[in-house]
């Protein structure tokens, strides 16, 4: 029981990070039906931004986190503007290949930047490490608490934006029907930019929280992290915001429990769950089924 609880804590700690990253996938997919392969690399860029920001004297966790959200967000808007927008209306696969191209570019660019390079770096301790007994031998530490609180906060802000602001309403309208939204006077381009901005900001935050948890970062960290978060988004039902959170948590928990069973199993386990879910609910846990009209 205590062991179970302990694993659950680890699972949630990882799951909230997946949820943050999955949110960006789901938002971008929802609005332009693109699997944004470059999204995972924004996670890496977020982590490195925080790494360098923390070197500036006096910069603590919160400023570093904000910087790590801002840079990927700006970058993401730029990418959308330069690489994806000109392809709007073209076959979706062309855009997908473009996204792969962008991703290859982002993964390899830091390699030649002298002060980054391909090596692993140890991430600064932005949060003081402390442990609190919880129940029996199960303990919870300060990083886990930070992860959960920070992601809960960020996710609430984001849901607030989507639910209650004008931009959020525009976002929902565009994802429902781009042409109709444009006819209603919604600035589709701007709305898509905002979506990329928010999604990437969350990815950057995810990168920081992940690096707090596993304080070794390298330029390929985004590849696997991105893949797993994407799986989480699909698991929850891509396009659905609560689905991304649910999928993220589920992925984190499954992965931790599977790894506890057998260390090589952790990675594949998430995929196994995904496939089982998709076979019985092809639209994911909280997605909406599509019906073809004849």
């Amino acid at each position: 029981m205590e062991h179970f609880l302990q694993l659950l804590i680890f699972g949630v700690q990882l799951g909230v990070i997946y949820a943050l990253i999955a949110m960006g996938y789901t938002m971008v997919y929802g609005i332009i039906r693109l699997i944004n392969f470059a999204h995972g690399d924004l996670v890496m860029i977020g982590a490195f931004t925080a790494y360098f920001a923390a070197r500036v004297p006096g910069v603590g966790f919160v400023p570093a986190l904000l910087a790590a959200m801002l840079l990927p967000a700006v970058l993401s808007v730029l990418i959308e503007r330069l690489a994806y927008r000109p392809l709007r209306g073209r076959p979706r696969l062309s855009v997908l290949i473009t996204a792969i191209g962008v991703s290859i570019f982002l993964e390899n660019l830091p390699r030649v930047i002298p002060f980054i390079g391909p090596n692993y770096r140890s991430f600064p301790k932005l949060i003081e490490f402390r442990e609190f007994p919880l129940y029996g031998s199960a303990i919870v530490n300060s990083i886990q608490i930070t992860n959960v609180i920070a992601s809960a906060l960020l996710l609430s802000v984001m849901v607030g934006i989507v639910r209650f602001t004008k931009s959020g309403r525009a976002m929902r309208a565009v994802s429902f029907n781009k042409d109709a939204a444009a006819l209603m006077g919604i600035d589709v381009d701007r709305t898509i930019s905002i979506t990329f901005f928010i999604g990437a900001a969350l990815a950057g935050a995810g990168g920081v929280l992940y690096s707090l948890t596993y304080p070794m970062i390298d330029i390929l960290m985004g590849v696997w992290l991105g893949t797993k978060a994407f799986v989480a988004a699909v698991l929850g039902g891509i396009g659905s915001l609560p689905g991304a959170v649910l999928g993220g948590l589920l992925m984190g928990i499954v992965e931790v429990f599977a790894t506890a069973l057998y260390s090589e199993l952790g990675y594949g386990a998430g995929f196994i769950v995904l496939i089982l879910v998709l076979l019985f609910r092809p639209e994911g846990l909280m997605g909406k089924p599509t019906i073809e009209k004849v």
Binding site: A83, P86, L87, S94, V95, I97, T98, I100, G101, V102, S103, I104, F105, L106, E107, N108, L109, R111, V112
Partner: peptide, 13 residues
């Protein structure tokens, strides 16, 4: 690979 990525994007454009 940086160039490869750029070429891929240009190609699709």
């Amino acid at each position: 690979l940086i160039i490869y990525g750029v070429v891929l994007v240009l190609m699709m454009l």
